[in-house]
Design a protein around this nucleic acid. Structure first.
Lengths: 172, 172
DNA sequence: CAAGTCGGTTCGGAAAGTGAACTGAGATCC
DNA sequence: GGATCTCAGTTCACTTTCCGAACCGACTTG
């Protein structure tokens, strides 16, 4: 039985020590868990949708606002936060009148697996008419597959074969 | 130049027609975009953290509450929502006193790529001391790799090689 | 029978989200 | 050259959600 299977089945499991989290009494500094830290930046409905738009090539204030219907104040605040975090970059695209747009940085572009994973999950469980959009590997046109792969074994696998261990940045 | 590269570079791009989204004037029914639909269920900081805990084997009300510090009312509401959606299942684990726990369904378990993608991104961009936790392929102990893979070409690739097309469930 | 645990609900105040109106720089129209 | 338009916000009043603390009821343990 795999480690995840174990966690899924054992009612009294105190397993999975690896993933740190929770708010300890003397809570100082950022949370140890990367998921929690990531969510502090992008774990918000509007933020995620803004990023989806960025991947779609929608990057001007009013364009985003029209597309999503985000209240202006919220959009301005979220864009500020994303720029401060280094996920978006504000760039002048014309001088007269001066206009800026928000484009993904490398940091932002690497969020794509998260968006793709959300999309695949939504396709599979929420869309009964079939996926409204499919992503393809452009050179060949084959449907994009996002999954766990082991370079050592050369196999694809599912969540049940995953185990977690403390990493180099683990805290005492 | 790839389709995504195109969207990323062209300032006037009206590309990426595939991914549908936005709120059309006579907005009826669920959004066409799977990302948006998925976010309506799991696009919330607490919800994501509750799910992270579920993967860690934390599944009782008070256990979650202690771990995350979620206000009771919020936790109760989120769990209700997740159960209604079919992501968690409420299951009696003892009769005296009657106690239930919340465990992942298949639908919930398939959220793992989203959590893993969040974790990897957080590890890479937010944790300068190195990842606090690493996920390994249990049979061999190698670090888990989550990525885009093309079964036809047999290669791994990045977001720049992705193109989007209307799928079978696309709307007119 | 008193105290404790688990899984909630209820409540009042604080924070965040929301739509509408306003601003201000520049372009365009007539 | 004045009126209007666009873009990218800010400000404001109002509503919704969140939050922490208190309470509750079923059951167990001492």
């Amino acid at each position: 039985m795999s480690a995840l299977q174990d966690r899924l089945e054992r009612p009294d499991a105190a397993v999975a020590r690896g993933v740190t989290g929770g708010v300890e009494p003397g809570d100082d500094g950022p949370p140890a868990c990367s998921i929690e830290q990531a969510l502090q930046l992008v774990g918000d409905r509007w933020t995620m949708l803004i990023l989806r738009d960025a991947f779609r090539g929608i990057r001007r204030f009013d364009e985003i606002r029209r597309d999503l219907g985000t209240p202006r104040a919220v959009l301005a605040e979220r864009l500020r936060k994303l720029v401060d975090a280094g996920i978006l970059q504000r760039r002048r695209y014309q001088e007269h009148p001066p206009r800026d747009e928000y484009r993904l940085t490398d940091m932002g572009r690497e969020l794509s697996p998260i968006l793709v994973a959300l999309m695949h999950w939504g396709d599979r469980w929420l869309q009964d008419a079939g996926p409204p959009t499919v992503l393809v590997h452009e050179p060949c046109g084959t449907d994009v597959h996002l999954g766990f792969h082991c370079p050592a074994c050369g196999v694809d696998f599912g969540p049940l074969e995953i185990a977690s261990r403390p990493g180099p940045g683990a805290r005492p």
